[in-house]
Design a protein around this nucleic acid. Structure first.
Ligand SMILES: [Mn+2]
Ligand SMILES: [Mn+2]
Ligand SMILES: [Zn+2]
Ligand SMILES: [Zn+2]
Lengths: 142, 142
DNA sequence: AAACTATATTATAATTATTCTAAACTGTTG
DNA sequence: CAACAGTTTAGAATAATTATAATATAGTTT
């Protein structure tokens, strides 16, 4: 159980005041054991299911983006119509289950370190991400 | 210079008749030496710049998706608001230049083959893609 | 605690990418 | 030429996201 003061600290560093709505968002995002992969819509739904009152989408978008900009959340590249976010902000790779559009962390030791032998001249590498798309095996069960 | 008959063949296999508009799209897409990475908007702009008359967005979307479904184009995963397509349909990785939102192919021998040691149970791997985000090096020129 | 000020929340409008629809158009066949 | 099947197109519909601006709240000062 993470304490409220941690949420307040994250909010403060992100330049946001600790309001009731933002603390509720923090609780959903950061008060968990495991990595949480979500879309804005997922998050909004969880909040509205768990809460009596709803938090407006604008507030959710603003807060999530502020956290992302400060590195408390990561945005994940998937070819889809919506953005995915990730509470695991370390460098890591993903499986994407195309059957249910679910993101799953890939253990660090499940892939050997990626070594880029030659980078684009004059640029620095900001991130290296592997995305492994998987789907059900049962195409034609013979 | 690729011949018209190749375009017609690609269209036929994609289940599309060779109309004037579709052949023009083919010419922009496939009559080139190098890989072409583009958004629908890029493509529409190139066509309208090069053509006297415009091709409607609906036709461009339909044709590009038909080609994608038959494997003549690939859709690339980037975290952005729009979809990127790629005329290089082989398995390959990308640099993404965040300065100008440009995709660049990564030479096959620039990265060692990715070996996934343990896959999700019951799923088969459809693709493994590496995305290397790069940006200008000159943050603070000291 | 009341007043004051800066900031936050929210409903709603605007924007953008994409998909859908239905009417006009084209090319082919009898 | 008339009928038909498939195509193009403009524009409407949808969905994610961002912007706006009026109202509400939090933090500070008296
Ligand atoms: Mn798509
Ligand atoms: Mn975004
Ligand atoms: Zn993750
Ligand atoms: Zn490519």
């Amino acid at each position: 159980m993470i304490k409220n003061s941690e949420f307040i600290e994250k909010l403060r560093i992100s330049g946001l005041r600790p309001t009731k709505q933002r603390l509720k968002i923090c609780e959903v995002l950061f008060n968990r054991e495991k990595t949480f992969h979500f879309t804005i819509n997922d998050l909004a739904k969880i909040i509205s299911d768990r809460l009596s009152e709803k938090i407006s989408l604008a507030t959710i978008y603003n807060t999530v983006h502020a956290f992302k900009n400060k590195g408390y959340l990561k945005e994940i590249s998937i070819n889809s119509d919506k953005s995915y976010f990730d509470t695991n902000t370390t460098d890591h790779h993903h499986f994407f289950d195309e059957d249910n559009s679910e993101l799953i962390d890939c253990d660090k030791d499940n892939i050997d370190p990626i070594n880029i032998k030659k980078n684009i001249t004059g640029k620095k590498i900001n991130s290296i991400e592997v995305l492994i798309k998987v789907a059900s095996d049962n195409q034609t069960q013979n």
